[in-house]
Every structure is written in structure tokens, then in C-alpha cells.
Amino acid sequence: MTVHDITDQFLAILLREVGGTRRRWRNVIGPVKLYSAETHPHCNWSITPGGDAGENSAVERVADRLRDKYPIIG
């Protein structure tokens, strides 16, 4: 799983569950920040959504699910 793959996962889930456009969700999600697995052994990636309250809440719910499935990405 790569940064690109996790972004694709976010987009697929958000489009299916919430609707909207890929472009809007890509802007809301923003960049996936990747950290060293050595210094972040439980989860080496994060996001900082930049949408409205409802959009950010949807992104955070998806992020929690994806962190459970993919805590370490490369």
C-alpha cells in the first residue's frame, strides 16, 4: 500500500458512501503525510482534511477505518 493507493481508497469510499466529485474529495483530503515506521510504529501516515465540518467528519471516519486496515504504508 502506497500513498497513492491510500488516497485512491479514500476517494473510492467517500464517493460510494457520501457522493460528490473526485476533485472535491481530493481537495478535502489533501496530501497524505508519510512518516518513518521506525518513529511511528503504530501508524506511519496522517491526513489533515480541509473541508467543511461535515466533509472533515466523513474523511476522519474513513481515515479511522483505513488506519485499522493499513497502519503502515510505504
Rank of each mutant, 00 (worst) to 15 (best):
D52K: 08
R67G: 06
R65W: 06
T39M: 10
A58M: 07
W45N: 08
I72W: 10
S46C: 11
K69D: 14
E55N: 02
L66P: 01
H40D: 05
A37G: 13
A53G: 09
C43A: 14
C43H: 09
W45R: 03
S36E: 07
V62P: 02
V62A: 00
I73C: 03
A37Y: 13
W45C: 03
N44K: 05
E55M: 05
E60C: 14
W45A: 04
A58Q: 03
G54M: 02
A63V: 05
R61Y: 08
D64H: 13
R61D: 15
I73R: 07
E38W: 15
C43I: 09
T48R: 14
L66T: 01
C43W: 04
A63Q: 04
D68C: 11
N56A: 02
K69V: 15
S57C: 07
P49W: 00
P49Y: 03
A63T: 02
P71T: 08
P41G: 00
E55P: 06
E38R: 12
L66C: 01
A58R: 06
W45Y: 02
P49K: 05
P41Q: 00
N44H: 01
R65C: 00
T39N: 15
E60W: 09
H42E: 15
V59T: 00
S46N: 11
G50F: 11
E60V: 13
V59K: 03
E60G: 08
N56P: 01
P49F: 06
H40W: 13
T48V: 15
A37D: 15
V59N: 06
T39V: 11
R67F: 14
G54L: 07
L66Q: 04
G54V: 01
P49T: 03
I47M: 07
K69R: 15
A63P: 00
Y70L: 02
H42S: 15
S36M: 00
T48C: 14
H40V: 10
C43M: 09
P49A: 00
S57I: 03
R67K: 10
P49C: 05
L66E: 00
A58L: 05
I72S: 05
A53F: 04
I72Y: 04
T48L: 14
A58H: 10
W45G: 09
A53N: 10
E55T: 08
L66W: 04
C43T: 08
K69E: 14
R61G: 10
G54K: 05
P41F: 01
R67T: 09
N56F: 02
D68L: 13
R67A: 08
C43R: 11
G51R: 07
H42R: 15
V62F: 04
A37E: 14
I47Q: 04
C43S: 13
S36A: 07
D64T: 13
I72T: 01
T48W: 12
A58C: 02
S36V: 07
I72E: 05
D52F: 06
I47W: 02
E60D: 04
N44R: 02
T48M: 14
W45V: 05
N56S: 09
G51L: 06
P71L: 08
I73E: 07
S46Y: 11
P41E: 05
D52E: 13
K69M: 15
N44P: 08
